[in-house]
Amino acid sequence: MATLPLYAQFINLFAAFLLLLAFAMLAQRRVLSLINLFAMQGFALAVSTAIVAYGTHQSHLYWSAGLTLVLKVLLLPWLLHRLIRQLDVKWDVEGLINIPTTMLVGIVLVVFSFNLALPIAQLSHTVTRATLGIAMASVMLSFLMMITRRKAIPQVVGFLAMENGLFFAATSATYGMPMVVELGIALDVLVGMIILGVFFFQIREQFDSLDLKHLETLKENE
């Protein structure tokens, strides 16, 4: 441990936070808390990106960190909160699978991710390569969250959290993507969020509920 510089230890710390928050989101039943956790994850991501920027003197990463902070900590959670208020959906989130089982599956996924990241990490030469496994694990966990949730809003949160994990993977493996790509993705997420927001209203108007099981009726009949 002593061989690692201080900033790298901090990066590992925030990476650990990220993973922890991903598990917390997986376990969280309430929509409001879920959004808060998502904001916290965004904050951890922003801070860790800033530290990477500081430690490796990659100035463009400061921009990424700033962008993450504005978009994922402030704008998106605010949008989601507004949406919940407008739709009046502060109910508890019921999962398709109960929480302990989900957690167990999550642990298996983390092991798988670390196993997967090991050979890739050895190819990389960044200080942050050790955190690649965590990044992949948080992608997987977010995906799992999308699968296990029944309502539309938690699924969107899962989708956004998945983007967090991808972003973190990019930072840790190659010190971030080119700025253009990053801006593009940020914009995509924003636009995706707005479109999904519109869809929520449409879905509720159609089915009087945001429960996705109503969408099953859209399936082509035999």
């Binding site: 799992l144 999308m146 699968i147 996705l212 969408l215 099953e216 399936k219």
Partner: peptide, 13 residues
């Protein structure tokens, strides 16, 4: 084709 989003997500997962 189940018509359930979570099943489709599971496929891609």
């Amino acid at each position: 084709q189940q018509g359930r989003i979570s099943v489709y997500l599971t496929y891609s997962f």
